[in-house]
Design a protein around this nucleic acid. Structure first.
Length: 627
RNA sequence: GGUUCCGUAGCUCAGCUGGAUAGAGCAACUGACUUCUAAUCAGUAGGUCUCAGGUUCGAAUCCUGACGGAAUCACCA
């Protein structure tokens, strides 16, 4: 309660934008007889090259007010100055009304904001949201693509919390199916009883190695078959028309796996045995999945993410059939002659979509419908966010439309946080070509780079090895995470490993460095009487600009949450750090002209550090005290 | 082919509810550490915002079309 009050104090009571917009609204009405809502008024934070804090655009009112933009600006400006004590002055440039807010407003705002706990956080809004992310297959370790997913999911979840939502983090673990059966089969055939412990290999990589081994053996088998009379006969019969043999056999791979391959038959046999609940198969499946989870847990811990609940596909893959039946009864779905069940979404510019096969078994969509319902039953959430790559855009459009037509209570709160694939400078990642960047390797690489840089700088030499390593880890991970999160989710991004370990310029460590500089100054100023800050009334432009940026923080959180876009926060933190670095360079803090100014700058710096820490925390990035 | 998304400096990206002279970082060059952590700061150079129309007082931003790239359009998951 106390917390909430403080948040309200800081974010609502001193709302200068609201004050200004209300006054502009009054002015328009009083002087021009123009009626507008305060929230339709176009305003901006004044650009650096002009004097002022906020800018009102007057062009939209020229017609109804029958005055020139300059005249409108002038009259409105005077109105504001006369009626609002916090408006100190104004100037009009080409129809842009630049408003200068009085220093005492900024001063008062800062003094109030610094006492708020979790400044920037919005009050609880009573809504529950579930966010699904990561959701890997259990046959191989996590890679760079998962990292983007995990970072987006985690940071979005933190931002939603900051925006007042009650957040539940989940993932659906794809723990069943043919993929894990391949790993199982390869281990059974070629593993000689080895284990992660006996080999010293990280356990998810251990399982992944057998998946790769399966693919190798399968390819060998396939190659041999292609040369065999049977394979050649198939090419003659089906493929020879236009394609080269190479193209034919590439396209024919799945067919071969399903209809001719001995290894394929064995893997499929395992899947059938698993589905039948065969005790040995299930035991093996459990053992290998446990290995994978153990490895995943380590990676998640490295990345600093947690989940509230895991859903396992092995427990959900049969769900949804009852809902399909209900939908049939409601007339949402229809049954074809062959007994398959469909939905017609053509009036929503989507196609017809199968939701139950003719043999009555379910498809991916069926399972997703059932899982959504299960989650709602579990948590009664108002919203569900799915962090899934953009290759599944169509799938989610269809899923959401179906859920809407079924009248599911959460259907209006569904959101697909779609993100673009991660490319390498050399092109797409391809597992077949071995260009997939492994998550654990990548983390080690950035941390290693941070270690090298740190050793060169030598600023941490008086610390114990453990303390030093903890800091280095924070720096390396900040570089990696920020590099990925700063890009808008929707966009495909190019991941250059060389740039991802950069620690200068627009990077995570650059922001950490701003924080570290502040901590250092604060340590040296431990004895300063900060209450003197109250008396530092006249502000430097740079000081005011920094306060203005602090002021903007809650709006940034709101925007990031509203758009499910963590890059908003990343870019905000960078801008704030950049402004602070410049301030730090240009103005002495400990040796400011007066004690009051010094105290004020310490308070200001402390508040900047707090906002940077809060903002970066929303991205899952930790701040070191030193670096 | 249909649908959706992307196209901004050599490279990686901001800006997109329409607003002032389109911004950062990297790379290149120049300068600033006896002074609060130089993982910093300042400066130089770098642009037909893919192209063509349209709407508007005003378009990188909205609309239409073209071009280039990506994804998707399975009784696969």
């Amino acid at each position: 309660m106390c917390l909430q009050n403080q948040v309200m104090e800081a974010t609502t009571k001193l709302n200068i934008v609201e004050i200004i917009l209300d006054a502009v609204k009054d002015g328009l009405d009083k002087h021009f007889g123009v009626a507008v809502n305060a929230d339709e008024i176009t305003w901006n934070i004044t650009r650096k090259e002009f004097e002022g804090d906020f800018t009102i655009v007057t062009f939209p009112y020229t017609r109804s007010a029958k005055k020139s933009p300059e005249q409108i600006g002038d009259i409105l400006g005077r109105h504001l100055q006369e009626t609002e004590p916090y408006v100190k002055s104004y100037n009009v440039v080409k129809g842009f009304l630049n408003i200068v807010v009085a220093d005492n407003f900024w001063h008062r705002f800062l003094m109030q904001a610094r006492t708020a706990e979790n400044y920037g956080y919005l009050p609880p809004n009573g809504e529950k949201v579930m966010i699904e992310f990561s959701s890997p297959n259990t046959n191989k370790p996590l890679h760079l693509g998962h990292i983007r997913n995990i970072l987006l999911g985690w940071s979005s979840s933190r931002i939603l919390e900051a925006a007042g939502y009650d957040v539940t983090r989940v993932q659906i673990v794809n723990d069943r199916g043919i993929a894990i059966c391949k790993s199982m089969l390869a281990w059974e055939k070629f593993g000689k009883g080895q284990t992660p412990d006996s080999t010293g290999i990280k356990s998810d990589h251990f399982v992944g190695d057998y998946y790769v081994l399966f693919e190798q053996k399968f390819q060998e088998e396939y190659k041999a078959w292609q040369q065999s009379p049977e394979g050649l006969a198939h090419y003659e019969a089906q493929g020879k028309t236009a394609e080269s043999a190479e193209a034919f056999f590439k396209a024919y791979k799945n067919d071969y796996f399903n209809n001719h391959s001995a290894l394929g038959a064995e893997a499929k046999g395992l899947l059938l045995k698993w589905e039948a609940g065969d005790a040995d198969t299930v035991a093996l499946w459990k053992k290998m999945n446990e290995w994978v989870y153990e490895g995943f847990d380590t990676t998640y811990e490295q990345l600093g993410v947690q989940f509230d609940k895991l859903y396992f596909e092995s427990e959900t893959y049969l769900l949804g059939k009852d809902i399909i039946q209900r939908g049939l009864d409601q007339g949402v779905f229809f049954r074809k002659e062959d007994n398959s069940v469909w939905i017609d979404l053509e009036d929503a510019k989507l196609d017809q979509k199968l939701v139950l096969r003719s043999d009555g078994t379910s498809v991916y969509m069926t399972q997703d419908i059932g899982t959504a319902r299960l989650r709602y039953d579990d948590f009664k959430v108002d919203r569900m966010v799915y962090v899934v790559a953009d290759e599944q855009n169509y799938h989610f459009k269809v899923l959401f439309e179906i859920l809407k037509r079924l009248g599911e209570p959460y259907a209006e709160g569904l959101f697909h946080l779609s993100y673009g694939m991660v490319d390498l400078p050399t092109g797409k990642m391809k597992s077949r070509e071995g260009t997939v960047v492994d998550a654990d390797d990548l983390i080690e690489e950035v941390v290693g780079e941070a270690r090298g840089n740190s050793a060169e700088r030598g600023a941490l030499e008086d610390l114990s090895k453990e303390e030093r390593e903890a800091i280095i880890r924070k720096i390396g991970l900040a570089a990696l995470k920020f590099f990925i999160i700063k890009v808008h989710p929707r966009k495909r991004m190019v991941f250059d490993p060389k740039e991802s370990v950069d620690m200068q310029g627009q990077t995570g460590p650059y922001i950490q460095n701003a924080f570290v500089r502040i901590q250092s100054v604060l340590r040296k100023a431990a004895l300063t009487d900060l209450s003197l800050a109250e008396k530092h009334i006249t502000l430097e432009g740079a000081e005011k600009d920094l306060i203005s940026m602090i002021y903007d923080f809650p709006a940034q959180i709101k925007a990031a949450a509203g758009e499910y876009d963590p890059s908003v926060i990343a870019n905000y933190c960078y801008d704030l750090a950049k402004s602070y670095h410049k301030f730090y360079h240009d103005y002495p803090i400990l040796k400011a002209p007066t004690q009051e100014a010094s105290a004020f700058r310490l308070v200001l710096s402390g508040m900047i550090a707090k906002v940077l820490q809060t903002g970066m925390d929303l991205l899952g990035i930790e701040m070191p005290e030193r670096m």
